[in-house]
Write a protein that binds this DNA or RNA. Sequence first.
DNA 1: GTTCTAGAAC
DNA 2: GTTCTAGAAC
Length: 745
Amino acid sequence: MDTAAGGSASALPPPSGSTGTGAEAKEDGERGGKPVMVVLMGPSGSGKSTFAEAVLDGSATGRPWVRVCQDTIGKDKAGTKMQCLKAVADALKEGKSVFVDRCNLEREQRADFVKLGGTLHTDVHALALELPAKVCISRAVSRTGHEGNLQGRTAALVVNRMLQKKETPLLTEGFNRIMFCNDDTDVKKAIELYSALGPLDSLPSGVFGQKRQGPIQVGIMKFLKKADASSVEKSNGPKLTLSERKLGQENPLPKQEKVESGSCSMEAKTELNDNIENEEGAKESGSYDIGYRTLAFPSISTADFQFDLDREPLTLYIVDTQLLIACRRDITQLRSKGSLQCNVIANAANWRLKPGGGGVNAAIFNAAGEALQHATKECADTLRPGNSVVVPVPLTSPLREQEAVTHVIHVLGPNMNPMRPDYLKNDYTKGCKILREAYNSLFENFASVVQSYMGKQNDQPVAVKSASGDSKMKREGGHESERMKKHKLIQPILTKQQHECTGSNAPNYRGNSVGSSDAPNQATKADNKKSGVVASKSWGTWAQSLYELAMHPDKYKNSDSILEVSDEFVVLKDLYPKAKKHVLVISRTNGLDSLADVKKEHLPLLRKMHSAGVKWAQKFLEEDMSLEFRLGYHSVPSMRQLHLHIVSQDFDSASLKNKKHWNSFTTSFFRDSVDIIEEIEQHGAANTNSDDKVLAMELRCHRCKSAHPNIPKLKSHIANCKSSFPSHLLEKNRLVSSTEHMDCT
DNA sequence: GTTCTAGAAC
DNA sequence: GTTCTAGAAC
């Protein structure tokens, strides 16, 4: 980070308008001054109260200051956040500036205050007292008479715990300004700054005083070279350090973690560019809070892809990284279980970028929830070995909410497992090359994430490296898609909106293939869409065949599958029958695609279709009187053009293969024709709200309702089940059979 | 709608 | 190792 973002507290620009003559000051002056809310952040012992009191005492500028402290606000009792919020609101409304003196280390703790500032149109500053942990602990332990009675040994434990939960303040939380104080000198300067802030002054927005941690030197990263330390370039930067660790090495070196993943063991040293005091302080407190530019990565290719690192030892050089952690802990719980906050984690992915497969991939997709799957799909469809792709973790993902992981980088390494794709047949020359490429891609993408973050901090546009390698471009196409991906790295919140925009532009096949007679129907759809009743549906080319047949039955008149053609419908043997007898009565009305389109005017057609269905069922019964039939529609059909299924209830067919097939005929997804006619008679429309979820429900026998683990077992059960049908099917002639069922209604 | 197939389940 | 599921592609 350069001085554009403040560099250090000593490089702070003077307050703008400090003479009260600037344009901003004039504007503020007309409003009668501009109060500000300063949210102090720091553990016990960091000196928040001292800071606030020093400004209150030292300010001679006429700006009224109030300190709101949770330890004291409750008088004799412990204060509450609500009391603090009220006190802050009251003070701001009176035109007073406020120091919020609470720990505020976690985003959730401070979010309400930031929100309040927004509501009252007040600038909100974060002032983070980032003193070394051991300094805070030492002060907290030794003090007496603390307002919150926190002192002695308890204080050390509390400070320790607080620091583990610390979340670095971000502008994206809603702060106008963030300032970090890393030592007593910074604190002193900040006190002077706020003490000198006149009633009409304002401080510049941005991030100030954050520790410089050095840029990642992508150019000098040498990863996974064969052991030849002499070939490694030395860094140019004075603070850069170089460490060398051989994968599979036996003896751990100082300050390094031995890491195991799958069948390999791996070691990597963590190198911090911070001053030693800070690092020690962090370790002392059990907190490695180097948060927002830290990568944790598992060993690539060594588990499921069976790459044997013992056979081909490789060396991993990590040169002046912010921090790279090769990880043997649960990579999805580094923060909550390991006190390690890593904003970027790498995933040993599969080529389809899909969940499952066990190991790290399954764990990460499990922990991140569906949101990551969707986000991944937005970035790339597939991945080739040796490549990686950055995926911003959506704000809704538990991985983001609970572990503060902002990006997942999917990496695909070489595969030495004959059971997996891209098997290299033990070609370790090729394998090593791909593994090297994979790590290079991973680290370069990590660097791009860090750079994008720094760009955000600097509030300057930055070129962000997107998915590297040959991960497939989305079909929406080339540059635009790539541009959006880049944008997403910086602004994940916008991703959803942009995605929705993209989605709304999806091709609508209906419009391409239907003539002007379709217009009224389109209007209906549009109306429905406006009222939020039915989402528009587009039909794939494969879903058009019934429509084609209905419009041009003469083209297919020689087909054995067509049983009957009238002006209003076509009766067709289902090409993939789900039972011994399965035929379709297809409407020939153009624009009538599914039940959702059916209105009262279609009732005569529905009755004719039903009668035709009954007629054909009876015809089949003449051949086999053991059959029983149901007539009905799918709530949401897969194929265009309204069609009525007449299906025998034996479900004895090789074409019935999966859960969706079964559930589409045996759950509420299947709407009996008699019920549809009745609903339209009574309400003018059919209820098609049957949730798609019913299609994924457990497999239950349609007669006795027993559950079965899979399709083959279900099929062997239904072949023998002699139970009678559920009573509702025996009513209203929902079943057509040779035996007359009593209609109880 | 089906086909194909990776991955899960057994 | 084999069977089965479920998601992507068509």
